[in-house]
Write a protein that binds this DNA or RNA. Structure first.
Length: 514
RNA sequence: GGCCCGUUAGCUCAACUGGUAGAGCAGCGGACUCUUAAUCCGCGGGUUGAAGGUUCGAGUCCUUCACGGGUCACCA
């Protein structure tokens, strides 16, 4: 029995669907024309959606292997190909047609003429639309203008495209449509594929870097009973069978350190974090993070490794030692600048060092900057001033070292300055790229830090870290000295790909459903 | 969340101070067997994001809403 309430809800849902259906029934002349062709082909017994395709080459392979061959070479060798691709451009000239097919890397011209393929097949070809995916069989030659071309002997359909593609010259420009229908963006704007190839290359390069250093890659839970490891608001969900609230993880940190306790000396994880916060050109609610932890290290070692990792990636993927970002040049020449948090503050805010000793004045100053957002702690106030005055000025990679201990509840206190944390943030292109520390390993100290966070939470800081007793217990078994770091992969890709918006480096960024 | 901008044909874009919504590509029909943003001739295609309002008359002005972009804030 379906409860009455649910019935009502279903009826409403049905109604909504009906409305959508009628909307979709309004087909453009373009769609009607394509469907008519599809039906005609089906009537003639053509399989428009076959189960497989017997191919000999990819488009890019042919272009790579034969672009520089001369017409005589091609004729002599008589290279035959069976190549699949999507049709993007077409020039019909009566009994002959030129068109281009493309794969993910390149495009290739095809020449089909009635006297080669026969009247029947050429007639079938008249039912082809731009956007269809076909398999072309034929031999290679060069046109009068020297373009490598397949002279078609035959072709078969691999998929019919039932909608018109965006405009061939301008591509798909509408930013919203590009994200919502990313497949169209990828079909029409080949340069977009380069961004995601680069992204894939960065991630592969990172894996290679850590694998070479005897790290193991691990996967830790993404559903947490206590969302920890960062200061951020989580997404909440519910597990039916267990009857408990769960949170999508805001960071893998606490689990990775449990693994160090367990005896893995070097671990890394590349995966998604979820933070229930605003969306901006630098923030997507789900984002990809690399976190790595190495026993018998501290944050100084992490800085060295970070330089090595990012410089290596840049060298391997871009073949240079600098990045171009938003019209600026970011030099990656080592060693990178290392600046104390407080030095950065005085240097960029223009405020005398002594003013930072007056905690109340700093808090008032920062509160004015944020507007009326409730009371700030001294540490948070310094952080506000840092974000406002310092961060945007740091283009070249800079390690901002030793922020206040009170905003770093998982980091060891600095060995010489008990109010500071042995922690750094790496800033590049005005963005925070990495965050690392000498991991706090003293369980008693960790409990005190958690308790301080609970106090902050009571005062209204929703991002303060909740206490995680199970994690403290893990520390009580002994965490060796450990350096740990998180690197925001999306932002790193932004820098490498010279994209100012994080949505340009995420295939399917979060958008409000239409 | 504040402010600014945008939303017009399948796509890319026009439409002056309010006065019959246009072009290119794409589509359809025709010509065309080395074209490449092919060319030439002809044709069709619109709830101007939605709902109200002002006006004789609204794509254009006003209000509200939806979605997106930018920016600031929140936020790592």
């Amino acid at each position: 029995m379906v409860p009455a309430r649910r019935m009502r809800r279903r009826k409403m849902a049905d109604k909504k669907e009906d409305e959508q259906d009628t909307k979709e029934l309004k087909k453009s002349d373009q769609v009607i024309a394509r469907e008519e062709k599809k039906n005609k082909l089906a009537q003639e017994g053509v399989d428009l959606f076959p189960h497989n395709a017997e191919i000999s080459h990819q488009v890019a392979e042919i272009v790579k292997e034969h672009s520089s061959d001369s017409e005589e070479d091609l004729k002599k060798r008589g290279v035959k190909v069976k190549v699949p691709g999507r049709i993007l451009f077409m020039r019909r000239m009566g009994r002959a047609t030129f068109f281009h097919i493309s794969d993910s890397r390149d495009k290739l011209q095809v020449y089909i003429r009635e006297d080669r393929v026969g009247e029947n097949l050429y007639h079938l070809f008249s039912c082809i639309d731009i956007g269809d995916i076909i398999l072309v069989e034929g031999g290679l030659f060069k046109t009068r203008t020297g373009e490598l071309t397949v002279l078609a002997e035959s072709f078969t359909f691999l998929a019919k495209c039932l909608y018109p593609l965006p405009e061939k010259w301008h591509g798909l420009q509408d930013v919203e449509l590009r994200y919502r229908k990313r497949y169209l963006d990828l079909i029409m704007n080949p340069e977009i594929k380069q961004i995601f190839r680069l992204r894939s290359g960065i991630i592969a390069g990172i894996r290679n870097f850590f694998d070479e250093r005897d790290y193991i890659e691990v996967e830790t839970p993404m559903m947490h009973a206590i969302p920890g490891g960062a200061l951020a608001r989580p997404f909440k969900t519910f597990h039916n069978a267990l009857g408990i609230d769960l949170y999508l993880r805001i960071a893998p940190e606490l689990y990775l350190k449990r693994l160090i306790v367990g005896g893995f000396e070097k671990v890394y994880e590349i995966n998604r974090n979820f933070r229930n916060e605003g969306i901006s050109s630098e923030h997507n609610p789900e984002f990809t993070m690399l976190e790595f932890y190495e026993a018998y290290c501290d944050y100084n070692d992490m800085m060295d490794m970070t330089e090595e990792l990012i410089c290596g990636l840049c060298h391997d993927l871009l073949g240079k030692e600098e990045l171009t970002f938003d019209g600026r040049t970011i030099s990656l020449k080592r060693p990178w600048k290392r600046l104390k948090f407080k030095e950065a503050l005085t240097q960029y805010s223009g405020m005398a060092p002594s003013r930072f000793d007056n905690k109340q004045e700093i808090i008032t100053f920062a509160s004015d900057l944020t507007g009326d957002k409730g009371p700030l702690s001294y540490g948070n106030a310094l952080d506000v001033i840092f974000d406002k005055f310092v961060k945007q000025n740091l283009d070249h990679p800079t390690f901002i070292m030793n922020p206040p201990k009170e905003i770093s509840p998982l980091a060891k206190a600095d060995r010489d300055n008990p109010d500071e944390a042995e922690r750094f943030e790496l800033i590049m292109g005005g963005m925070e790229i990495a965050n690392a520390f000498s991991e706090l390993s003293d369980p008693a100290e960790q409990r005190v830090r958690f308790e301080q966070q609970v106090e902050e939470r009571k005062k209204g800081d929703e991002e303060a870290h909740p206490i995680d007793e199970d994690y403290v217990e893990a520390l009580e078994y002994g965490l060796p000295p450990t350096g740990g770091e998180g690197i925001g992969i999306d932002r790193l890709v932004m820098l490498f790909a010279d994209k100012k918006s994080i949505r340009e480096v995420i295939l399917f960024p979060l958008l409000r459903p239409k």
